[in-house]
Design a protein around this nucleic acid. Structure first.
Lengths: 333, 333
DNA sequence: AACGTTACCGAAAACGTTCCCGGAAACCTT
DNA sequence: AAGGTTTCCGGGAACGTTTTCGGTAACGTT
């Protein structure tokens, strides 16, 4: 690989001058600059970002740590992040953790070693060691789709999961439903807990008592939803509605109902959470809670950018409002 | 940020010794090594990957350039790539190009500046300038889901799109269909062309002539599929089958048919291409052509790894076989 | 003609590492 | 006791840049 020295030698000039040509510094004659650029092209020269980063203490790199890119939920967030970040000259480095704590820790240390300028993260579960790692990081961080842990002065961008869950439940109860089941995600997940709380609290707020037999927790896929629905239905003949903690679970439930020939919404109402693309498919038309995914990504990106640029910037966390999207899977009872 | 010098000064020893502790070099007393590691922890020291990369001329970084992470097709490929690459100690840097030629070029130059060790790429369209950029790259490259361009001695990992399209068509024709429409992707895409050729050639091979009115090309989304299906159906009353160049288009077609009350497969057979998750949904059950997405990613990763490690390795391109997945959207006629 | 400006350039230090080379003890030999 | 080994450590160059500082020539000014 050709270096700045090579082109300097080629022209019999100093590296300083070549560097000046590169950074269009004013202290250089137009003529020599032109010659230099020519030689660079000829030698197939490309500046070395490592050397630059070493001097400037800046790599123009932002780490984006998320649980799973293949999850459409996150890939859309990621697109939002990337869109605004590349616009201002950053390269984003993904960290796909697959909800594996070790991979999370590995990514964080890698981020520090590689001198990334900032981090946008969605850790799955915050234990002691991970928290400590964040505290020692010395890199600006914003949390995404998750509140930042106490003991860490980092801003976050999130949707109000609790409120969203309450909205879903209010909708169902407002429609007259009294016996409402819940299909939840694994308990160790942060937002699983919030959505579950929304379910429980809203039930109580209306004088209803959640039936433990009508509650499952533990998955996040379509297959889980199918299985959960079958289990719940068999044990609860009087159920008229289901709140699923995410759309994939809801769709699994819908599938099982369709296979059993139980008509939706006539015999069973269901509402999901996330508003994935697939929820709007003609055969599904799921009533669900929407979050502005792309906007959330964009906002997080804007915040991290300012945190890096402005030394004194005191970033504010932001909550996005969830929204009820009414489609065809609920009916009055 | 603490550096190696800081910990050396703290202990009154030389940086060389500290470096030895870091790389567990044999020339160091166990005792001093222990002291060094302790001070490192206390000072919150992390090695600087930029400085290391500068010396070793290796960054342990692989670039993965793909059109769209949010596309489930690519995110699964990406997961395959990442799985094997992180296993052997690489970090993968995504380049989301959104099929934008400028973004592709930007990513390539960024990859070179950042001294990435290797690249796995899925460029959308190969023009003169992009090809030249690849030729000047001086970094090992493997092409993914696309054949490598002539004039570039790079291996590729792909599925035989042409053969897959032929298989889909053979299936339809074998079922007795004679009037078969085609819903295609934008013409400037490399694989769109191959799948289209498969359609045309198989028609001809059976003495059938493709009807220009029953062919659309130009989209890759569900919305496109819906629109294309409506257009084709209105102009071709005798059509009994549709081959859609990808599953999203097929699903769009299916949606339109469902809305119109045209029963599938009774009145219309349809087959797709890609075998996305969503194609197996209960309401869809699309007959389609599968590609081993994750395997393709893994294979590409393994190849790039060897190309980097073994100077003399002559990488072989690999074709994966497409597979016909029969579900419920085709019938004999 | 003497001076101050301006325009342009080079030398060298610095960024944080690694690694080669040499050297000083301390340990074995015989 | 002299020599040879081994063990451990420090000095300093190198990686490819940027940047500060200083310097030289050419210019304009009075």
């Amino acid at each position: 690989m050709a270096t700045i020295k090579d082109v300097a030698k080629e022209l019999g000039i100093s590296v300083s001058t070549v560097s000046r040509a590169l950074n269009n510094h004013p202290d250089i004659k137009e003529q020599t600059k032109k010659e230099i650029l020519e030689v660079m092209k000829r030698l197939n020269y490309t500046p070395n970002a490592l050397a630059r980063g070493l001097i400037h203490k800046k790599t123009n790199t932002i780490g984006l740590m998320i649980p799973d890119i293949a999850d459409p939920f996150f890939s859309e967030i990621a697109n939002g992040v990337e869109e605004v970040l590349t616009e201002v000259g950053y390269q984003v480095v993904y960290g796909n953790t697959m909800r594996n704590p070790d991979k999370e820790k590995l990514f964080l240390s890698s981020a520090k070693e590689r001198q990334m300028d900032g981090l946008i993260v969605t850790p799955n579960f915050m234990d002691e060691k991970l928290l400590e790692q964040f505290q020692r990081l010395q890199i600006p961080v914003v949390f995404l789709r998750r509140r930042s842990p106490e003991g860490l002065a980092a801003p976050f961008v999130d949707v109000d999961h609790y409120k969203g869950a309450c909205m879903a439940m209010e909708h169902l109860i407002g429609l007259g439903h009294r016996h409402i089941g819940f299909i939840g995600m694994p308990e160790l997940s942060f937002l699983a807990e919030l959505r579950y709380q929304g379910y429980v609290d809203t039930m109580h707020a209306h004088g209803l008592t959640p039936n433990p037999n009508a509650i499952t927790r533990g998955g996040r896929t379509i297959a889980h939803g199918r299985e959960a629905m079958s289990r719940i239905c068999e044990q609860n003949k009087d159920l008229t509605a289901i709140f699923a903690a995410n759309d994939l679970l809801a769709i699994g439930a819908l599938e099982w109902l369709a296979i059993q020939g139980i008509p939706v919404p006539e015999k069973m109402s269901v509402v999901g959470f996330d508003n994935l693309e697939v929820a709007s498919l003609h055969w599904i038309k799921l009533t669900t809670i929407a979050q502005p995914r792309k906007q959330m990504g964009e906002e997080a990106a804007r915040i991290i950018d300012r945190m890096i640029r402005e030394e004194t910037y005191q970033a504010q966390s932001v909550f996005f409002e969830p929204e009820l999207i009414q489609r065809n899977t609920c009916r009055e009872v």
